[in-house]
Design a protein around this nucleic acid. Structure first.
Length: 277
DNA sequence: TAAGATAAGAGGGACAT
DNA sequence: ATGTCAGTCTTATCTTA
């Protein structure tokens, strides 16, 4: 379990990411042979990957002298072309909007930079494959972001993502399945242990119970009763049962709410878990 | 009041037609 | 393409302790 973020174990707020940019900065001065890192890191979240050239509007040349009138008029032409070509196709307009949405969601869900980059990458691929046709941008954004979370083993539910962007869950799941299939995504199996961590932080459960719950899940895994079940539901039930045997009672309601599933689901999973303990 | 039981319904995968 | 089937999860309601 190596999620790329450092977060508060109580509330899940992302404090920092483990992605430092430690490459040397611009180094023209001493040795011209090493120009490896001039300029900003190129980012997938910028629609032009942050590689655009800006034609400044001050009419001076690089040494600060005023320009001749012929140079001025050709600059005006250049600027016009530049502004026209910057956002030219529909796809780029689409991308610009989508990437903005990704950044908004990243803030709302306190996700790491690495994840928004991944989501942006997925969205680009989806766009290339013409998968947006007939679907809303928002739904595809949500799906990309959710996929990025899954890929990074950062537990966020489809519901959370869908609510944050205001799209019906149904559409997000449909888009997620679509990009999953079309882009040949490989997802790591959902780690029930990290589900435990998330629920525990939501429901304020002690360390001991967390450990007990993990033991229960390991046992269940060996007996293959986890397959096909909602991982959050399984984790919630394990936590609930662990709480009971340790005397620290949490109600089904509390646990179910913390896990984002219903009490009934918790009860169903409890039935199968009780059979193996 | 919490926990358990039960029923109806939604949404999607597998498989056949 | 469309329909059916088994299985899962949700919502709602009722009963039990």
């Amino acid at each position: 379990m190596d999620s790329k973020e450092i977060f508060c174990s109580k509330c899940g707020f992302v404090v920092d990411e483990k992605t430092d940019d430690r490459r040397p900065d611009r180094s023209f001065g001493e040795s011209d042979s090493n120009r490896s890192h001039a300029g900003d890191k190129s980012s997938l979240v910028r629609h032009d990957r942050g590689l655009s050239t800006v034609i400044h509007s001050v009419d001076r040349d690089s040494t600060g002298n005023p320009l001749s009138s012929t140079m001025k008029s050709s600059l005006v032409r250049l600027r016009r072309w530049d502004s026209i070509s910057r956002v030219k196709s529909n796809d780029e307009r689409n991308l610009r909007y989508a990437l903005g949405e990704i950044l908004k969601l990243k803030e709302k869900l306190s996700l790491s930079e690495a994840i928004s980059e991944k989501a942006a990458y997925l969205y680009r691929k989806a766009l290339e494959k013409k998968l947006i046709r007939g679907r809303s941008i928002s739904a595809l954004v949500a799906a990309s972001l959710y996929a990025a979370c899954r890929a990074s083993e950062t537990p966020r539910t489809i519901n959370e993502v869908a609510n944050a962007i205001g799209v019906r869950r149904k559409e997000v799941t449909a888009c997620y399945r679509l990009i999953f299939r079309e882009l040949d995504l490989k997802m790591p199996v959902v780690d029930t242990v990290s589900c435990i961590a998330k629920i525990a932080s939501n429901a304020d459960v002690s360390e001991k119970i967390k450990r007990d719950a993990i033991k229960i899940l390991k046992k269940a895994e060996r007996q293959h009763i986890l397959a096909g079940k909602h991982p959050m539901g399984m984790a919630a039930s394990a936590l609930y049962l662990a709480g009971i045997s340790a005397g620290e009672i949490k109600t089904q309601r509390d646990i179910a709410d913390a896990a984002g599933v219903t009490e009934v689901t918790v009860r169903q999973r409890c039935k199968s878990l009780r059979q193996i303990t």
